[in-house]
């Protein structure tokens, strides 16, 4: 309990530091937002008035705290480009990105755990070595290129899905998931390859330890030793890695959303960066950052549950 409390405290501090950095980063941008909004012909009185109205005259720490408070209550300001509240722009984008990331994560786990154990178990066989080579190549393919290959193969040649034909979950939840399968695989494949490699080496390393020999000497079969003893211990470094991977995939989805024209957070972020729509960009980055920090916290908690020795 003390452990979780400490980790929760660290999480809160990290959220504070990160949001502060994001806030500051968007304050050092050259150019005055007020002048941007009013144009060069604005009178000094008008500029002063709007500045007062937007709260730009007050000290930075005060503005930060107010921004943070508003952010957590869901008030993220208005988009420069569209003039509508950022919150309403983001509301239906967040579930898309989260679903995509979680789906990709499910693929990573579903592919890598069986394959990792399989290659470790048949370490010396030719097919295990072939998988190793394939693995090494797969982890070097950037997810957006995997995405393009999948689009070509399944979208254009086999016509299993329509590239660019994203279906919103409000229209058809099934069509939504069916479309997301391909981008999810694109995100998952390189990460799964890395996980397979890690799990394999972790299992092989554990297999050399004394407790394994003891387990064998008590008459256990290979499978029993593997699944009852080795697997659990070998999983510990893999969990850390998977946690990092999940955080990475949240960001990785930004690129893959672009490949498959999915109107999620990432696509909006890229548009807002290119059009200099700072309130939108700032809010999305802060949201993704908080998601990542929360994932890290959950991994820490899970880690403790798997391995009680950690303090």
């Amino acid at each position: 309990m003390k452990y979780i409390g400490r980790k929760a405290l660290i999480m809160l501090v990290t959220v504070l530091i990160v949001t502060m950095l994001v806030f500051l980063a968007f304050r050092v941008i050259p150019g005055d937002p007020v002048l941007n909004m009013l144009g060069t012909s604005a009178t000094p009185e008008k500029v002063e008035q709007l500045r007062e109205q937007m709260g730009l005259n007050r000290p930075l720490p005060v503005r930060y705290i107010e921004w943070l408070r508003d952010f957590f209550f869901g008030d993220m300001g208005k988009s420069y480009t569209y003039g509508i509240p950022v919150r309403s722009m983001l509301a239906d984008k967040v579930p898309i990105t989260i679903t995509l990331t979680l789906l990709a994560f499910v693929f990573v786990v579903a592919i890598s755990i069986p394959l990792g154990i399989f290659t470790a178990k048949h370490e010396d066989k030719w097919y295990s070595k072939a998988i190793d080579v394939l693995n090494q190549i797969t982890m070097s393919i950037p997810s957006f290129f995997v995405g393009m290959l999948l689009t070509y193969l399944f979208g254009l040649i086999l016509k299993w899905f329509k590239p660019g034909g994203f279906v919103n979950y409000k229209v058809s939840p099934v069509g939504f998931i069916l479309y997301l399968i391909y981008p999810a695989i694109a995100i998952a494949l390189p990460k799964a390859a890395m996980t397979v490699k890690l799990l394999k080496s972790s299992v092989l390393k554990e297999g050399k330890l004394d407790y394994v020999r003891t387990a064998y000497s008590r008459g256990n079969s290979t499978d029993e030793v593997l699944y009852k003893h080795v697997f659990k211990n070998a999983l510990i470094p893999v969990i850390t890695f998977l946690g990092m991977t999940l955080a990475d995939m949240v960001a990785g989805s930004i690129i893959v959303e672009q490949v498959f024209s999915i109107p999620g957070l990432g696509r909006l972020l890229i548009t807002s960066i290119s059009t200099r729509d700072y309130p939108v960009a700032q809010s999305i980055i802060a949201i993704i950052a908080c998601l990542v920090i929360m994932i890290n916290f959950l991994v820490d908690v899970l880690y403790k549950m798997v391995d009680p020795r950690i303090r």
């Binding site: 950095l21 960001a251 972020l269 990542v292």
Partner: peptide, 20 residues
């Protein structure tokens, strides 16, 4: 401070830089 930065996907941080 390093830990906080490292816990972060580098692509995201790069995007913050680029947008600024």
């Amino acid at each position: 401070f390093n830990d906080a930065v490292l816990a972060f996907p580098s692509l995201l941080l790069a995007l913050v830089f680029i947008s600024v």
